[in-house]
Design a protein around this nucleic acid. Structure first.
Length: 639
DNA sequence: CTAGGGTTAG
C-alpha cells in the first residue's frame, strides 16, 4: 500500500532506490514504455540497463528518451554507448528533430570525433542557430580556429542570424593575424545586433582584443559593459598580464577588488602571472595566503601558477614544496619546476627532476619540457649532457621533433662551452632559417670567447636582420673593444646613431614591504634619488679600492671617459642595488630585478658588492637568476 | 539543444 502510494507520488525516486533487476521488471511491467524509466536508470548511473531498455522499447522510443540517453553519454563521454543510441535513432526515426541532432554534435565533439560531429551537421536537412553554433563551438574548443571561422561565414551566407551564443563562441577563434581582422568585422556586426553589452559576448570580445595586443580596445569594451562578473574581470586582468603589463594588471586587480569583484582560481592564476613578472614575492605570498584561507579545492592550474610565481621571485624551495604536495600534476607543473631550476642555473636539479618525470611515467614530456631541460643544461654548465638530450631527441627517441628553439638551445650550449666554430657550423646545417635570436646567442658566445672572426660575420648579419635592436650593436662593439679595434668600435657606434635605434628603456626594481621601488637609467623620479645616487658614488669609490674597474666598453655614447663612467653609474640596476643596501639591515640578502639582460659592468659591480659588504645579491634579469655570493656568481659569468 | 576568462616556453 505504501509502495503504491509512493509510486503515485514520485515514481522515479522509488525506481532509483530499487535494485537494478527489480527496477527493470517494474519498468517493463508496471509502466508503459516511456522516457520516465530511462530517466531514472540514467540518473541512477545505469547506462547499460538504459540501453537495454532502449532496445526493448524499439520503435516505441520517444524523443525524450533519446535525449535522456544522449545526455548521459555526453556527461560520461561514453563513446560506444552514444554510437548505439545514434544508430538506434537513425533506424527508428524518420526525421530526428533538430535538438537531438544538435545534442549528437555535442556528444561527438566531447568524444573528440569532430568528423562524426560534422557528418551529423551535414546530414541535417534544416539547420538553426543552435546547431550551427554547436558545431562552431566544437571546432573552436578543439583549436581548429579557421574551420570555426569558415563555418561561421557559411552560417551567415545561409541566412541564419547569429545569436549571443554564436558571437561568444566564434570570437574565441579570432586570435592570430587574419583572425583579428575578421574579429573586428564581427565586432561591428555585434554592434549592429546590439549584443555588444551582453556579458558573455563582451568578455569574449575584450579577450579577443587583448590577445591581439590591443589592450586599449579591450579596456574600452570592458568599461562599456553594463555589468561585470568574475569572467569579464579576469579576462581584462589577464589581458594586461599576458601582454607583460604587470603593474597595470595588478593595479586593475586592486581597483576591481575594492569595487567588490569576486575572484576565483582563474583570477588568482592571472594575478600570479603578473606577480611573477614583477617578482613581487611579498604580494605573491599574500595571494597565496588568501588562496589558502579561502580553502579552494586544489586546482592544478592555480598550483602551477604558484610554482612559477615562487620560482620567478627567487624562492625555489617553496616552488618545490608546492610541486611535491600536488595530488596531480600536468606537464605544465613539471615544466614550471624545470624552468625554475633552469633559470636558477641548477642544471643538476633539472637533470634529476627530468629523470624523475620519466621514471614516474605519468605525464609525457612535451616540447617545452625539452626547452627547459636543454636550457637548464646550458645555464648549469652541463653542455655534454645537454647535447646528449638533443641528439636523443633528433633521433626521434621521445616522439618530439626538435623545433627552432631547441636548435637555439644547442647553439647556446656549444657557444657557452667555447665551441664557437662548431656552433657556427651547426647553424649553417640547421633545417631552419636562423633567426635573430639564434645569431644573437652566437654573437654573445663570440664576445665571451673573443672570437672576432666569426663574431664580426655574425654581428653584420644580425645588424642586417635586426637593425633596430640596440643590444646587438653593444655586443659587437664590446667584441671589437676586447680586440682593441677602436676604429671599428667607433664605426659601430656611428652606425647605431644613424639607424636611430630605439632601445627598450632599462629599468630595475626592488621590493620592500610589498612596495616595488623602480629605477630607470639616470633616474630622477624616486623620492630618495639623492640618497641613492650618493650611495652609488660611495660604492664605486669603495669598490674601486678593492679592484673594481668600470667596463667602459659597455657605453656606446660618444663621450669622454669620465662621462662614460657617469653613464655606467647611472644604470638602473646599480641604483636599485644601492637602494637595497640603504633600506635593508646589514647582512640581509638583496633581491634586484631587471627588465633587460644585465650588463657586464653591473654584473661585476654586484660581485664586488657581495664580496665587500658581505651581502648575498640575487639578481633576476630577462634570462635568468644571478645568485651572487662572496664575489662569485652562479651564472659562471656566462649569460 | 548552442556561450566568455586560466598555468610552463618564446
Amino acid at each position: 500500500m505504501i509502495r503504491k502510494l509512493s509510486l503515485f507520488y514520485d515514481a522515479n525516486q522509488v525506481i532509483s532506490s530499487m535494485s537494478n533487476q527489480f527496477a527493470r521488471q517494474l519498468s517493463l511491467t508496471s509502466f508503459p514504455p516511456n522516457s520516465q524509466n530511462l530517466n531514472s536508470l540514467c540518473s541512477n548511473g545505469q547506462l547499460r540497463e538504459a540501453l537495454v531498455e532502449m532496445a526493448v522499447q524499439g520503435l516505441e522510443m520517444k524523443f525524450e528518451g533519446y535525449y535522456t540517453l544522449l545526455n548521459e553519454c555526453v556527461n560520461r563521454r561514453a563513446f560506444r554507448e552514444g554510437q548505439r543510441v545514434h544508430a538506434h535513432m537513425t533506424k527508428t526515426c524518420y526525421l530526428p528533430p533538430m535538438h537531438l541532432r544538435t545534442r549528437l554534435i555535442v556528444f561527438y565533439n566531447n568524444c573528440e570525433c569532430l568528423n562524426d560531429a560534422q557528418r551529423v551537421l551535414d546530414e541535417m536537412p534544416v539547420r538553426n542557430v543552435v546547431s550551427w553554433t554547436a558545431m562552431i563551438s566544437a571546432y573552436s574548443k578543439r583549436g581548429y580556429a579557421s574551420e570555426a571561422l569558415n563555418l561561421f561565414l557559411q552560417m551567415l551566407r545561409s541566412g541564419t542570424e547569429p545569436n549571443e551564443f554564436t558571437f561568444a563562441t566564434v570570437l574565441t577563434s579570432c586570435s592570430g593575424a587574419w583572425g583579428f581582422d575578421l574579429g573586428r568585422q564581427i565586432h561591428s556586426l555585434i554592434i549592429k545586433t546590439k549584443f555588444e553589452s551582453h556579458i558573455f559576448v563582451g568578455s569574449s570580445l575584450l579577450d579577443m582584443y587583448a590577445k591581439a595586443g590591443r589592450i586599449y580596445e579591450a579596456r574600452g569594451v570592458f568599461d562599456c559593459l553594463p555589468e561585470r562578473d568574475v569572467v569579464s574581470c579576469t579576462a581584462i586582468i589577464s589581458g594586461y598580464a599576458q601582454l607583460g603589463l604587470d603593474e597595470e594588471a595588478l593595479e586593475l586587480f586592486r581597483l576591481l577588488q575594492r569595487e567588490g569583484m569576486t575572484s576565483n582560481y582563474v583570477t588568482y592564476a592571472s594575478v600570479l602571472t603578473a606577480l611573477s613578472g614583477l617578482a613581487a614575492l611579498d604580494l605573491g605570498r599574500q595571494v597565496h595566503n588568501h588562496v589558502l584561507r579561502r580553502e579552494l579545492p586544489s586546482y592544478v592550474v592555480l598550483q602551477n601558477s604558484l610554482i612559477d610565481m615562487y620560482s620567478k621571485c627567487g624562492n625555489l624551495s617553496y616552488s618545490r614544496r608546492i610541486f611535491d604536495s600536488m595530488p596531480e600534476r600536468t606537464v605544465i607543473s613539471w615544466n614550471a619546476m624545470l624552468v625554475g631550476y633552469s633559470k636558477h642555473g641548477m642544471g643538476k636539479e633539472v637533470v634529476k627532476l627530468f629523470k624523475l618525470m620519466k621514471e614516474e611515467n605519468k605525464v609525457r614530456p612535451d616540447s617545452v619540457t625539452f626547452l627547459a631541460v636543454l636550457s637548464g643544461c646550458s645555464h648549469g654548465g652541463m653542455e655534454d649532457r645537454g647535447l646528449e638530450y638533443f641528439y636523443a631527441m633528433a633521433e626521434g627517441e621521445n616522439g618530439i621533433e626538435p623545433e627552432l628553439e631547441h636548435y637555439g638551445c644547442v647553439v647556446d650550449l656549444l657557444g657557452r662551452a667555447g665551441r664557437v666554430e662548431e656552433a657556427f657550423e651547426f647553424i649553417k646545417k640547421m633545417r631552419f632559417e636562423p633567426t635573430a635570436a639564434i645569431w644573437g646567442s652566437l654573437l654573445g658566445a663570440c664576445r665571451v670567447h673573443s672570437n672576432v672572426e666569426i663574431g664580426e660575420f655574425v654581428g653584420f648579419r644580425l645588424l642586417h636582420i635586426e637593425p633596430e635592436n640596440a643590444g646587438n650593436y653593444v655586443i659587437l662593439s664590446n667584441l671589437y673593444a676586447s680586440a682593441g679595434r677602436w676604429e671599428d668600435v667607433r664605426n659601430v657606434r656611428e652606425l647605431m646613431v644613424e639607424k636611430a635605434v630605439i632601445k627598450e628603456p632599462g629599468r630595475s626594481w626592488i621590493e620592500l614591504d610589498q612596495i616595488l621601488h623602480t629605477f630607470h637609467a639616470s633616474d630622477r623620479s624616486h623620492p630618495r634619488r639623492e640618497e641613492v645616487s650618493a650611495k652609488v658614488k660611495e660604492l664605486s669609490v669603495k669598490l674601486k679600492e678593492a679592484g673594481y674597474v668600470p667596463d667602459l666598453g659597455c657605453v656606446l655614447y660618444d663621450v669622454d671617459e669620465e662621462q662614460k663612467e657617469k653613464v655606467l653609474l647611472g644604470h638602473s640596476e646599480k641604483m636599485a642595488l644601492a637602494f637595497g643596501l640603504i633600506a635593508t639591515p646589514e647582512g640581509v640578502p638583496v633581491r634586484v630585478i631587471k627588465n633587460l639582460r644585465i650588463c657586464v659592468d653591473c654584473h661585476n659591480f654586484a660581485k664586488f658588492v657581495s664580496k665587500i659588504y658581505g651581502r648575498e645579491v640575487s639578481l633576476r634579469d630577462k634570462n635568468r637568476f644571478h645568485h651572487i655570493v662572496g664575489g662569485t656568481c652562479s651564472c659562471g659569468d656566462y649569460w
